[in-house]
Simulated scan of single mutants.
Amino acid sequence: MKILVIGRSGQLSYELVRLLGSDTQCLGRNDTDITDEEALFGVLTQYSPDVIINAAAYTAVDKAEQDIANCQAINTTAVQHLAKYCKQTGTFLVHISTDYVFNGHKGIPYLPDDPIEPQGIYGKTKAEGEQALLSLLPEASCLIRTAWVYSAHGNNFVKTMLRLMKEKDALSVIDDQIGSPTWAKSLAEACIDAAKNKIVGVYHWTDEGVASWYDFAVAIQELAFDKSLLDREIPITPIPSSEYPTPAKRPHYSVLDKTSARKAFTSCKPTHWRKQLSAMMDELK
């Protein structure tokens, strides 16, 4: 089976290539413009994959509030192009979306078929990408929503916290946004299961358990200190979102219900986020 990964520089694509091996084709910005339908179709025709995993996304949540055109081109238009190509060629498509398509008010884990109501430009463009995929390719696609992704590769909350914990004498971290931290390797395993078995439908995948950003930060420091990635511990203070305003509105509660995914992705082992965080930090060492 020829699996082609779209998105070379991201955390997910990095983990996908590591798991799938060096023979996997991975297309980045220098290989094709995914927002240009003709150019994209030309490149995809050359590779003629059996399955495409779309790991490309515009994920600068705050920047998206001003950079609307670019965000929409990558998160919506490119997905539409990929779905059209796959429909024409009989290629299966695995696409990654986000907890930001929900409004964050539910208070209990979101089911895959719950109504979506994105609150910002990033979430809206991802929701429009979902709708394009499901309208064009409902019987040959797997849509996987995830949340709070981090990895030893690239920029993410874990690496930012580690840097700040070395630089600062104290930190304040939001404690009223709740979700599930997810190691990109875990997400990559789910994507590969979906790709190899051509699992159709909408699913949610994160690591197990829930946390606030404050809880996550405390765990990062504890584990990093234990593993000698930090040589001291600093005070971390919980604060409400109102004390840390951002251009984009974030969901206060975005825990995703993974019941159907646990049954569908049979080769994946759901694991608590803290254990996954520990394994990722072992890689950093």
Rank of each mutant, 00 (worst) to 15 (best):
D114V: 00
D114G: 02
P115T: 00
I116N: 01
E117N: 10
E117I: 01
P118I: 01
P118Y: 03
P118E: 01
I121G: 08
I121F: 06
Y122A: 00
G123V: 07
G123H: 08
K124F: 12
K124P: 02
T125V: 07
T125P: 00
T125S: 09
A127N: 03
A127T: 04
A127Y: 05
E128T: 03
G129V: 02
Q131F: 06
Q131I: 06
Q131N: 14
A132C: 09
A132K: 06
A132H: 06
L133W: 13
L133Q: 01
L134H: 02
L134N: 06
S135D: 09
S135F: 14
S135Q: 09
E139S: 10
E139D: 14
E139N: 12
A140Q: 12
A140N: 13
C142L: 07
L143F: 14
I144W: 03
I144D: 05
T146M: 01
W148Q: 11
W148V: 05
W148R: 09
V149W: 00
Y150E: 08
Y150N: 10
Y150S: 07
Y150D: 09
S151C: 09
A152V: 15
A152R: 13
H153C: 10
H153E: 09
G154M: 05
G154S: 00
N155I: 14
N156S: 12
N156W: 01
F157K: 06
F157D: 03
F157H: 04
F157E: 02
F157M: 11
V158Y: 10
K159T: 15
K159F: 09
M161A: 14
M161S: 10
M161I: 14
M161H: 11
L162Y: 09
L162I: 11
L162C: 08
R163I: 10
L164Q: 13
L164E: 11
K166P: 01
K166M: 08
K166F: 05
E167I: 12
E167Y: 09
E167H: 10
K168S: 15
K168M: 12
K168Q: 15
K168P: 10
K168F: 07
D169M: 13
A170N: 15
